[in-house]
Simulated scan of single mutants.
Amino acid sequence: MTAEQVEEVLTKAALDATGQASLTDDQKIVGSKAQCDEFMDTLRGASESVKASAAWAKLILFHQEA
């Protein structure tokens, strides 16, 4: 795929994910592999944080029920 085709696919994916017809001026697509890797690492970190918070919440609820 060319860089332009990748940009088109990423834009389409972003629009599909948000249900929007077009991106607003303050939204942008990740432009390079390095930026994409950094963004994905950020998402993974946020996911792990949410998982940890959920585990703590379950533990607290479990102890309150006991």
Rank of each mutant, 00 (worst) to 15 (best):
K12N: 08
K12E: 08
A13S: 06
A13T: 06
A13H: 04
A14W: 02
A14I: 01
A14T: 04
L15K: 05
L15F: 01
A17L: 08
A17Q: 01
A17K: 04
A17G: 00
T18N: 05
G19R: 02
Q20L: 08
Q20G: 00
Q20H: 05
A21H: 02
A21M: 05
S22P: 00
L23P: 01
T24K: 08
D25T: 08
D25R: 06
D25M: 01
D25W: 06
D26A: 03
D26C: 03
Q27E: 13
Q27A: 05
Q27H: 05
Q27V: 03
K28M: 04
K28D: 07
I29A: 02
I29S: 05
V30T: 06
G31Y: 03
G31D: 08
S32Q: 03
S32E: 05
S32W: 01
K33S: 13
A34L: 08
A34N: 07
A34K: 12
Q35G: 09
Q35K: 13
Q35F: 02
Q35L: 09
C36P: 00
C36R: 10
D37S: 11
E38Y: 09
F39L: 11
F39P: 05
F39H: 14
M40S: 14
T42P: 00
T42L: 12
L43M: 09
R44S: 08
R44N: 09
G45L: 02
G45M: 03
G45R: 06
A46F: 05
A46Q: 15
A46L: 14
A46Y: 07
S47Y: 13
E48H: 12
E48V: 09
S49F: 13
S49N: 15
S49A: 15
S49E: 15
V50I: 15
K51I: 10
K51N: 12
A52V: 06
A54Y: 07
A54V: 10
A54W: 04
A54R: 11
A54P: 00
A54N: 09
A54C: 11
A55M: 07
W56V: 15
W56I: 14
W56H: 10
A57S: 10
K58D: 15
K58C: 07
K58A: 11
L59C: 03
L59K: 14
L59Y: 11
